[in-house]
C-alpha cells in the first residue's frame, strides 16, 4: 500500500527506536516515551498506540512489576521475533543511511580497483 516516504520513514524509525531501547533493557511505556522524546522529539502520547501495535504484531510482550509507590508497572520486553525485527531493521537502516551519506558526501571516495 502506498504511503508517503515521510510517514513511512517516521513510522519505521519510531518502531526501530523502541526496539533498540528495549534491547538495552526491559522498560515501561513512560520511561520509553521520555527517553525517545528526549532523543528524537517524539510526542509522548504516540507511544501507547505504537506499543499496542507492536504487542499485537508479537514483537514485544508484557509483564507486571510491583512498584514501590503506586500501582504495578507494565513492563515491555522483546520477544525473539522482536530481536529479529531489530536486527533486520537496524541493518536496513544502516545500509540506507550509508547510501544517503555517500550521496551527501561532497568528495566522493574513489574506490581503487586492483
Amino acid at each position: 500500500m502506498p504511503e508517503t516516504i515521510d510517514i513511512q520513514m517516521k513510522k519505521g524509525v519510531l518502531g526501530l527506536c523502541v526496539l533498540a531501547v528495549l534491547a538495552r533493557g526491559e522498560s515501561y511505556a513512560y520511561e520509553i516515551a521520555s527517553r525517545l522524546s528526549d532523543a528524537i522529539g517524539m510526542g509522548e502520547g504516540t507511544i501507547y498506540p505504537l506499543m499496542r501495535r507492536m504487542q499485537s504484531d508479537g514483537l514485544v510482550d508484557t509483564y507486571l512489576v510491583e512498584s514501590s509507590a503506586g500501582p504495578s508497572r507494565k513492563y515491555y520486553r522483546l520477544t525473539s521475533a522482536g530481536h529479529r525485527a531489530l536486527q533486520d531493521q537496524s541493518s536496513e537502516w544502516r545500509g540506507f543511511t550509508d547510501a544517503v551519506d555517500a550521496l551527501l558526501d561532497p568528495t566522493p571516495t574513489v574506490t581503487q580497483e586492483a
Binding site: 510517514i7 524509525v13 522529539g41 517524539m42 504516540t46
Partner: peptide, 8 residues
C-alpha cells in the same frame, strides 16, 4: 494525534 510527532 497519532501521527508520530517527530517534527519538533
Amino acid at each position: 494525534v497519532l501521527k508520530p510527532a517527530l517534527d519538533n
